[in-house]
Design a binder for these strands. Structure first.
Lengths: 100, 100
DNA sequence: TCGAAAAATCGACAAATTCCGATATCTTTG
DNA sequence: CAAAGATATCGGAATTTGTCGATTTTTCGA
């Protein structure tokens, strides 16, 4: 995954919005029966509802963000949870301030 | 200019390359008759030659980077010089580490 | 003031991205 | 194992981006 692909992943309002929501899941998503979102994140269905886009679109967006290493996916039974990769986001900020 | 437009401006290899070259102009560009590049930057023609793309493409890329506030343009007679906006780049890094 | 150099803008078209609906895969449960 | 729910993948229409060549605008110098 190259630098430019990380920026491409961030070049879309919905995807930026998803990253923002996942910063405070408890504020933006209903309680899940399927696991604490602080640990493994929020399931695709909840994120999809919030965006108003179709399931397929949101699924693709999430995997794009994951490929850019900005999100981490965890399969929890029939659900896939996504959460932010805070480490990678910090590294991106550092990279921009030093290398860009 | 919105957040997402900054990332769009960065979503292209050539534009990232231009930003990188402008970090150390004396290393990447020939001496100019038209001004010190540490002060006002490098003229469009030199940047264009280095990219190998056409003049129109590079001119558009530069103004896109300027619209995103990542570059500053200075008209010097018949030349336009572009240099990095280090301030804005630092702010972007901060924004990513705090707000993204 | 005219012509040439530098840069910006315009019009076009191919390639990439956005987003959808349909279908396939995986997982749980009866 | 079959059905149902959650997610992933596929194929495509519409929009945006990448990039070009041609033209226009700006500025300098003869």
């Amino acid at each position: 995954m190259e630098q430019v692909d990380i920026f491409k992943a961030l070049s879309n309002k919905t995807r930026l919005q998803i990253l923002a929501w996942l910063k405070e899941p408890e504020k933006h998503f209903p309680v899940q029966e399927c696991g604490e979102f602080n640990k493994t994140g929020v399931c695709v269905g909840h994120i999809q509802q919030k965006t108003g886009l179709t399931q397929s679109t949101v699924s693709e967006y999430l995997s794009m963000l994951q490929r850019a290493n900005l999100l981490v996916a965890t399969r929890m039974g029939q659900w896939t949870h996504y959460k932010r990769n805070e480490e990678a986001i910090k590294e991106l900020a550092q990279h921009i301030s030093k290398e860009l």
